[in-house]
Each structure stands twice: as C-alpha cells, then as structure tokens.
Nucleic acid binder design. Structure first.
Lengths: 232, 232
DNA sequence: AGATTTACATGATTTTAATCATAAAAATTA
DNA sequence: TAATTTTTATGATTAAAATCATGTAAATCT
C-alpha cells in the first residue's frame, strides 16, 4: 500500500462523470496506492469500507468456490470502478474479491465520501445506474452461457469479450496476458478443459498463441462458436 | 391486452419511489393491461419501447437457448419492475423475454415518459441504482453457482430463493406454483435431473411436495446444500 | 544463481448431468 | 365430455467435462 503514485484526477469513471466543481473534493478525499502483481486488494467477506477505481493496471473481480476454484466475474481496466458493494441492501461485506493482475495504481474512496458524491452528483448516479444496467445485461448473458453453452463456446465468448475490453496490440494479440487458469476461471471451466479447447482452436486455425499472448485469426469462426445453438 | 383492469397507483416500484407530485403524471402516462397465464409480454429480440411493472400476478424473466431451452433469470412479483432494457448502452432490443406465470395485471410506461421520470426524480434514479446493485449481486452468486455448484445445490438455492421472494402460505408451502420445468430452468438444469434431485430431497425428508406445491421441511439441511463446498 | 513455487502440458479415469425413449396423469380447450 | 396438449414420471444410454496423476518449463524469490 505505497502511497507515492498519484492519479491525474481525470481518468476514472468517477472523475469523468461528476461535475467539475466536485473534482477538488474528490482530489482531497481520494487515496491512491500502488499494487503489485497478484496483490489482493480486498477479499470476499472483508467488511466494506469504500469503493475503488483503477488508474493503472488491470484487476480481476472474482468469486471463490471452495479452496481452489473461482469464477472471474469481470475485469476492471483503466478507469473502471470496482468494489461497488457500498451500494444496495446488506452492503456490509464484499461479496467478491479483487486482485491485481499486474502492478498498478488504485484509487480508493471511502463510503462516506462516496455517498456524499452520489447526493451531490445526480448525473454521476445516473451514469452509475447505466453502468449497472450494462453489467446486469452481461451477467444475464453469462448466466445463460454457463447454464447451456458448452465450454468451447464459453471460451470463444471469453476471448471475444477480452478483445472487446482490452483491444488488440500492434502485434495483433489481445492486449492482456492471462494465465490459462485465469482464462479458465473467466470461462467458468477447469484449466485442463480450457487447455484442450484452446488446442482445438489452434488446430482449427481460429487462434494462434505465443505463450500467454493470444491472437484471434478467424474472428467469424470464433463468433460463430460463441453463438452456436443460441439461435436455433 | 385488455385495458379494463387498473392498478392503484401506489403499489409498484415506480409509484413507491417517485415524489408524490409526479404520481398524477404517472397515472396519466401508465398503460395497464391484463395478461393471462402463459402470455408472453415481450420476447427476446423485440424492439424496446418501454418498461414494465407487475401489479397482479407473477412474471418470469427468461433467456432462451436454442429452441427448447431457457434460463429463468428471475421472477418479478407484485410491484416489481421488469424489462429495464430501456437503460444502458445498445438499449434497442430486449435481451430477455417476460412471460406471465398466471393471470395478472401489468403496467407499462413508455421509454420517453420513463426517461422524464428519471430526470425529475433523482430519488427514484437512486433507488433504481440500488435495485440494480442488488440484482448484480445476486447475478454474481448465480454465475458462480452455475459454474461450480452441483445441480442439487442449485436446486436447494433455487428453493430458498423462491421462499425468500414469495414467502410461505398458510399450508406451509412456498407461495408460488412452478412447473418442474420452470424450476429446472430457474436452477439451470434439465427437467429430468431436477426431477431426480427433488426425489432425493423427498427421500432425505428435506422437502415435501403436493403436486406443484413444495414445502421446505428442513431449512437447515437445504441451506447446507446450498452452501456446500463454497466455504471449504 | 540456485531453490522454490507457479504455470503449462497431456493422458487416463471417473463423475455428473444431459439425452433419449416411452408411458401415464393432469390440465386445458374445442 | 372428448380430444389435445402439457406436465409428470422413470429407466437406459451417452456425452461432456471434471478429476486424478505426473512430468516439464517458466517465473519468482532468496
């Protein structure tokens, strides 16, 4: 929890959606700190004290199952809000964990100031509601996929979602490096199964890989896999 | 779409959360209509025109998979909002379907008036955001369960969720009658598997059934099943 | 740099739950 | 009320994916 690194007060979801007059208050109340790769920012069951934003780096938001399984709910990248359990009923403990995927800078806002922010910034509240509506929409898709779509389709969907969120870098790779285990946890399957599925995708010339880097070669086929049977 | 039956303008989520001064506007702009059992209120892919509330009856919100599978995302009961796809990005088509589980009365608000309502009622917007936060929380649990929890646990969880939402009637039954197929679709499994699981629950004296009516006899055991392995 | 931990790789086996098949009962509708 | 549709019931079979087991490679920590 080093406190040196500072954000620019204009990048995150909060700074971008609140009225300019409120920014000094944000600057005065925010707490920046840097995290290193693999650092747990908060863990399922921890008491809720505030809300977080990503300034640098990527964070996985995940939910544990037993000792050694988890589901990655989503990724928070530059600017994104996470830990929004300050809101809603029974908002006393984080229902999910948040872990840094790489070194980065996090911004923390305590509950009290966040609630003041909501009161003062109806526009921000509105934006937050829209964000939740979109999250909910994605969650609905993911639930259906987990219930009915085979692993291969879920992996295809996961790769497309990663491409959407992180984009493609100069070399043509999806611009995030995940371990196969994290990819598996994101797709909601085991490492071994995902390993086999990725092998199939390689065989079928749908993707190429280079270590953790993944390149989508045939977007259409991948897309078709992610849709399969949902249209019949 | 009979237009005779009218709601009382004080029961639904909208009427309860907006300022009183706005209620006449709501009354002037709402469109009530009655639905019969099994009636599809809107279907996945339909263009979005407005938002709905339940005044009487229960509605299932579901997402299709192929021709004959679906996942029931949630149930909307008296007062509940549904079809909130008016909000968020790409809010052009309903991503889910809504079907009446029994005869009832529905309230419809068109998009334009709903957006005006949000502008005029920051308090309502705030309540809606909290509602979404809670929905999201439940969705996170459901996703993890679909990914990792065995069907028996998911059925246990489903029964407890039904008890929570609909309560217990005088005879001690969960106060909603679902077909086994709907219970299966809510738990994210097939009819046959759920049938077998319910048989096990009967054998273990955890529930009793009487046709579609289900009574939870041993809440603790059911709760334990719905937790199993998530704590290890 | 060496030691240790974490991630990758892959085959064999087992388990779970879906699929298929078929019949009876119940509910709905003509 | 007869006819049709929907729901319930249940066994047999198959398929998908998890688990188990084991070795190697790569990354991280002293």
């Amino acid at each position: 929890m080093k406190k040196n690194a500072q954000c620019d007060n204009q990048t995150c979801f909060l700074c971008k959606s609140c009225i300019k007059e409120w920014l000094p208050a944000v600057a005065a109340n925010k707490k920046n700190f840097s995290v290193k790769k693999g650092q747990v920012i908060f863990s399922e069951g921890d008491p809720v004290t505030g809300i977080y934003f990503v300034y640098e780096g990527n964070v996985k938001v995940h939910k544990k199952w037993g000792a050694d399984k988890e589901l990655i709910i989503r990724f928070a990248n530059k600017g994104a809000i996470f830990g929004h359990r300050v809101l809603g009923k029974h908002a006393t403990h984080y229902p999910i964990s948040a872990t840094a995927l790489e070194a980065g800078i996090i911004c923390y806002i305590d509950m009290e100031f966040f609630e003041a922010t909501l009161k003062v910034n109806p526009q921000f509240t509105y934006q937050l509601m829209l964000f939740f509506a979109d999250e909910l929409h994605e969650a609905e898709n993911k639930m259906r996929n987990l219930a009915h779509m085979p692993v291969k389709g879920r992996v295809a969907h996961a790769l497309l979602a990663l491409k959407d969120q992180f984009g493609i870098n100069q070399e043509g790779h999806i611009d995030i490096e995940l371990t196969r285990q994290d990819l598996a946890s994101f797709a909601g399957a085991t490492y071994e199964t995902v390993f086999r599925v990725v092998n199939e995708l390689l065989q079928e010339n749908i993707v190429t890989t280079n270590g953790k880097k993944i390149c989508i070669v045939d977007n259409d086929k991948l897309f078709a896999l992610a849709q399969e049977a949902s249209l019949n």
